[in-house]
Amino acid sequence: MRFMVLVKATKDSEAGKMPDEKLLTEMGKYNEELVKAGVLLAGEGLHPSARGARVRFSGTSRTVVDGPFTETKELVAGFWLFQVKSKEEAIEWVKRCPNPMHGESEIEIRQVFEMEDFGAELTPELRAQDARLREQATKS
């Protein structure tokens, strides 16, 4: 099972405050543990929303909205992608994480859909297309 682990933004992360050396060292050790355990598939920090954009969809219309975005509690400051056996295992790994924002912070854990989750609607043709795209993406 794959889980997306989302580090929620704070006022400090949205202001562009960078982590100190102590936190970077702690996160480096934590990421090493994840890699050695075969859990970590990917993980990165994100720039503040002031440097981002959103694309809103309404039928065939597309509207681009530049950041910053006001609802800090709804924003993501970083992520990991874990490969684990269960949600409980993902939770245990997250509980071992250093506090990513010092003070108050929150990390959200969400399971990633796998192809088999889509059932009969995912036809053999769509499965083959997905397999081709995944193979091409890993070569990039």
Rank of each mutant, 00 (worst) to 15 (best):
C97F: 05
H102T: 15
F118K: 06
K22E: 12
T10A: 04
H47W: 03
G67K: 08
L23T: 05
V76H: 06
Q111C: 02
G67F: 06
L23M: 09
F113S: 07
K8D: 13
R134E: 02
G59P: 08
V7G: 11
E71L: 01
H47C: 03
Q83H: 10
I109K: 05
E71G: 00
E44D: 10
K85H: 04
H47S: 10
A50D: 05
A42S: 06
D66F: 00
E74T: 02
W80S: 11
K73E: 09
I107N: 14
E14G: 08
R132N: 01
E114D: 05
L133R: 06
E108G: 04
V39I: 13
L75K: 12
F57W: 08
E21R: 15
F79R: 05
V112M: 10
M101Y: 09
L24D: 12
E33V: 07
Q83F: 07
A50N: 09
E33K: 15
T63N: 13
P48S: 07
Q83K: 13
V5H: 04
Y30K: 09
E104H: 08
K22A: 09
E88A: 12
L41N: 01
M1V: 11
Q111P: 08
V5A: 03
R96D: 00
S61M: 10
F3Y: 15
A37S: 09
